[in-house]
Structures are given as C-alpha cells and as structure tokens.
Simulated assay, not measured.
Amino acid sequence: MTVPPFPYPTQAVVLAGGQGSRLRPYTDDRPKPMVEIPGTGTPIIGHQLTWLAAEGVTDAVVSCGHLAEVLQDWLSRARLPLRVTTVVETEPLGRGGGLKHAAASLPRPDEPWYATNGDIWTRFPLREMAAFHHERGAEATLALARPRIPWGAVETDEFGHVLDFIESPPSPYLINAGVYVFSAAFRDLLPVRGDHERTTFPRLARERRLAGYPLPHGAYWRAIDTAKDLTEAAEELRTQSR
C-alpha cells in the first residue's frame, strides 16, 4: 500500500444552521439538513455524514442554528459511522464567523479539514480533492460544479433560424459546489463575524492561495434548495437504482 506524502483530512465541519425558507413547509418544524430525500427515509445530513465517513472522516462538527434541538435530537439517536459533536451559534455570526466558530471544536487543530454546506447532496472522491489541494499548496480549495440550467435552451444559427431545443443544458459557468478542503491555518484567516466569501476568499485569490477543484465527470451533485430539488433528487435516485 502506497503511503500518501501528506495526511488526508479526517475531520470536517458541516454547516447546518440555515433556515431553508425556500423549502417551506418542509422546514417549518425542522432545519434544512433534516429534510428527508423522498424514498430514502434519511435526512440530507445523514447522507452527508455517511459519505464523509466513507471518505475517511472520523470526526465531524455540525454547526447548528435554526431549530438546532431537532437536529441535535436526531444526531443523538442515529447510528452514525463517525464521531459527531455540535455547536450552536447563540448570535448570528455570518457564514465566515459561523465556520470559524465551528472549526474551533475540531479535535485536531493542527491538521487540514473538510467543510460542506448542510444542503448539499453529492458523491465524489474527497481524497482526490485533498490531493489536488495539497499539490497546489493552497490554503483553501473549493469544489466546483457545473449545474444544469433549469430552463430549456434554444440553439439558433447566425441568421436567427432555430436549429434545436435543448432541455436543461449544462451551465457554461462553474459554481461553488459548497464543499471545501482547508489547511490547518485557514481558521485563523476567517472573520469573527461576516462572510468569508466576500473577505477571506477574495484575498486568497489575489495571493494565488485559493484553488478550484472541478468535480469529476459523472460525479453526482445537487443543492437541495426547493421542493422541486427534492422531487428531482428522488427521481434521480430511483433512476440510479434501476
């Protein structure tokens, strides 16, 4: 067995404090990561923790906020494949501040770590992303997805003749997929309050210390933002199991 030249991360933060207003009424009595994918009997965060464990993560810190007690109760009763602790924001800290607050509870502060938004359902090789991060000497690496546009597209020629109709084509742009690899030192670069995507990330980009990892071809990725996303995720799951 080949020993990697660096330690793969074995700890992660899951940001699970959002209110999920666009998923109402599902989120009237539970936080967004506790919404179940229809047909699975498992909430979004359950799928995430199983994936993280399969990728070598042994410890996860879940950052709670909206209806935190519902999520904490489920975590206390669930049979989980890794150790999980929770932290709760007593006041709004913003995305960057919340991430910093949660990272303070990671068990190995001198080691790299993963982070993921609590409304992402995905499967791809995290270790490959960690290797990409290490090879580039980055402080932070973002997973990049190319989602499908929710509308049909129309292809025309230079004379304005319609050539074809394309249902939900891939976006021409890559987007932040909500999954990250961070160096051990990254926590110190985060704001105590505020949004790291407006402060820390732009600064690291200017210094060429921020990397972007395109998800491998065929990797499954979906952000669960609306009821339509739940329906489509369930249909995709049924298609994959046939």
Score class of each variant (00 low, 15 high):
residue 171 S to W: 07
residue 70 V to G: 01
residue 216 P to A: 08
residue 197 E to A: 14
residue 103 A to M: 10
residue 106 L to P: 01
residue 85 T to E: 11
residue 87 V to N: 00
residue 9 P to C: 07
residue 57 V to Q: 01
residue 22 R to Q: 12
residue 190 L to P: 13
residue 221 W to Y: 11
residue 53 A to L: 06
residue 17 G to Q: 03
residue 121 W to S: 11
residue 148 R to F: 13
residue 127 R to T: 14
residue 215 L to V: 08
residue 159 F to M: 12
residue 196 H to W: 06
residue 40 T to V: 06
residue 206 R to W: 10
residue 2 T to H: 05
residue 12 A to P: 03
residue 129 M to D: 02
residue 225 D to W: 12
residue 169 P to L: 12
residue 104 A to W: 00
residue 16 A to F: 07
residue 86 T to F: 06
residue 189 L to S: 11
residue 76 S to Q: 05
residue 21 S to P: 03
residue 41 G to M: 11
residue 160 G to Q: 09
residue 239 T to W: 07
residue 133 H to T: 12
residue 108 R to P: 01
residue 154 V to G: 04
residue 9 P to Q: 02
residue 240 Q to S: 14
residue 132 F to I: 11
residue 81 P to Q: 05
residue 204 L to I: 04
residue 97 G to H: 00
residue 14 V to E: 07
residue 189 L to W: 04
residue 222 R to I: 12
residue 71 L to N: 03
residue 200 T to S: 02
residue 18 G to Q: 05
residue 215 L to P: 04
residue 48 Q to D: 00
residue 75 L to Q: 04
residue 8 Y to D: 01
residue 209 R to H: 09
residue 104 A to G: 10
residue 34 M to T: 00
residue 30 R to M: 10
residue 20 G to P: 05
residue 172 P to L: 11
residue 142 L to A: 07
residue 50 T to Y: 00
residue 198 R to L: 13
residue 226 T to Y: 00
residue 206 R to N: 10
residue 211 A to P: 00
residue 235 E to D: 11
residue 28 D to G: 03
residue 48 Q to V: 08
residue 161 H to C: 12
residue 191 P to Q: 09
residue 38 P to I: 09
residue 13 V to W: 02
residue 186 F to N: 03
residue 147 P to C: 13
residue 137 G to T: 05
residue 131 A to R: 15
residue 176 N to L: 11
residue 102 A to I: 08
residue 230 L to G: 12
residue 117 N to D: 15
residue 217 H to A: 15
residue 159 F to K: 13
residue 162 V to D: 01
residue 77 R to T: 10
residue 141 T to C: 11
residue 203 R to Y: 08
residue 171 S to R: 10
residue 227 A to P: 08
residue 100 K to F: 01
residue 194 G to H: 02
residue 31 P to Y: 02
residue 141 T to P: 06
residue 184 A to R: 02
residue 8 Y to W: 09
residue 116 T to S: 14
residue 139 E to Y: 13
residue 89 E to T: 07
residue 10 T to C: 08
residue 215 L to G: 04
residue 213 Y to G: 01
residue 79 R to G: 05
residue 119 D to R: 08
residue 233 A to K: 07
residue 15 L to P: 04
residue 111 E to L: 14
residue 84 V to E: 00
residue 18 G to P: 06
residue 104 A to H: 01
residue 37 I to T: 09
residue 237 L to F: 06
residue 99 L to K: 05
residue 174 L to P: 00
residue 38 P to N: 04
residue 18 G to S: 12
residue 196 H to C: 13
residue 106 L to M: 08
residue 173 Y to L: 14
residue 201 F to L: 13
residue 170 P to S: 06
residue 236 E to S: 14
residue 194 G to I: 10
residue 156 T to W: 10
residue 4 P to K: 07
residue 35 V to A: 03
residue 27 T to L: 07
residue 71 L to C: 11
residue 127 R to E: 13
residue 231 T to I: 14
